[in-house]
């Protein structure tokens, strides 16, 4: 799965959690916090994304991502090694 495909999946869940972002065009540099997602929203987005990807890893491993691009990068790495 490509990084862009993963970003599309992340974006889908961000829109579900923060409905005001319905029309937002997501980019690699987007930060969830700056998009108005609080810490509970962010964890929710991560959990939903992991479920969509059928990925079973420790959530703590995702905490270092600073933007959506980096998050997609970590997820892609985990997918490849799982």
């Amino acid at each position: 799965m490509s990084k862009d495909e993963i970003i599309t999946i992340i974006a889908e869940h961000v829109r579900a959690v923060v409905p005001t972002l319905e029309a937002h065009q997501f980019s690699h540099d987007d930060k969830l916090k700056e998009l108005g997602a609080n810490s509970v929203d962010r964890s929710e987005i991560l959990m939903m994304t992991m479920e969509s990807l059928s990925l079973k890893i420790s959530l703590v491993d995702l905490a270092s991502a600073r933007n959506i691009g980096e998050l997609a990068g970590i997820l892609r790495e985990k997918l490849q090694s799982s």
Binding site: V40, S43, M47, L59, V60, L62
Partner: peptide, 8 residues
């Protein structure tokens, strides 16, 4: 974030 994820 890290705290919330560790809690979950």
């Amino acid at each position: 974030d890290l705290s919330l994820l560790a809690y979950l």
